[in-house]
């Protein structure tokens, strides 16, 4: 008889931690665009808060992803997808770390002389970062829905669900 594995497995922490930064960073990028178009300080401040929060979330996601990697890489049939997911996640992490560093340096008044360039760099980096982030999410989804990465597949007779 197959035994039902416990829910709180190592690989579970990754999906639990990646969706928040995904939503926050895409929303932050949208707010950057809105603030550029309507020239609103409120939207710009909101976008900066979301960018920094999301960046912290991305690195948490990468940490939990590395934990999940050990658990699933020996089970899936195409680890090249996992590798592409990992490489793109690191690129996203560094892009938004760059964005956050610029925001923090600007906040403390270090970048006053190149304010226009900073604004341009933030928008460009955020748009590209969000694009790669969405692609990274897509790769993660294919790992789960096409290769059952980290997923328990019930036995044919569902015997592990019988008390």
């Amino acid at each position: 008889m197959t035994e039902l594995p416990g829910f709180w497995r190592t690989e579970i922490w990754h999906p639990l931690s990646v969706h928040l930064p995904l939503a926050v960073l895409v929303l932050g990028t949208l707010f950057f665009l809105i603030s550029t178009i309507i020239k609103s300080v409120f939207w710009e401040d909101m976008s900066k808060i979301l960018a920094i929060t999301g960046t912290i979330g991305v690195w948490v996601g990468i940490y939990t992803g590395n934990l999940a990697d050990s658990a699933v890489s020996r089970q899936i049939c195409d680890p090249t997808v996992l590798k592409a997911h990992e490489v793109n996640a690191y690129i996203v992490g560094w892009i938004f770390s760059g964005v956050s560093a610029i925001i923090i340096l600007e906040y403390f008044g270090f970048l006053k002389k190149i304010k226009k360039l900073i604004k341009l760099a933030l928008v460009i980096l955020s748009i590209i970062g969000s694009g790669i982030l969405i692609y990274t999410g897509h790769l993660g989804a294919t790992l789960v829905y096409q290769q059952a990465a980290g997923v328990h597949i019930p036995s044919e007779d569902c015997s592990e669900f019988i008390d």
Binding site: P79, T80, K83, A84, E86, V87, N88, Y90, I91, V92, G93, W94, I95, G98, L117, L120, A121, I124, L125, I128
Partner: peptide
């Protein structure tokens, strides 16, 4: 100058991203 700065920033970010996890692999 702006274009050069942005290009350098991107090059550094991508280099960090790819080297952080061993880079792409072959089958």
């Amino acid at each position: 100058l702006n274009a050069t700065v942005i290009t350098v920033v991107f090059a550094v970010i991508f280099a960090f991203g790819i080297s952080s996890c061993g880079g792409n692999t072959d089958v």
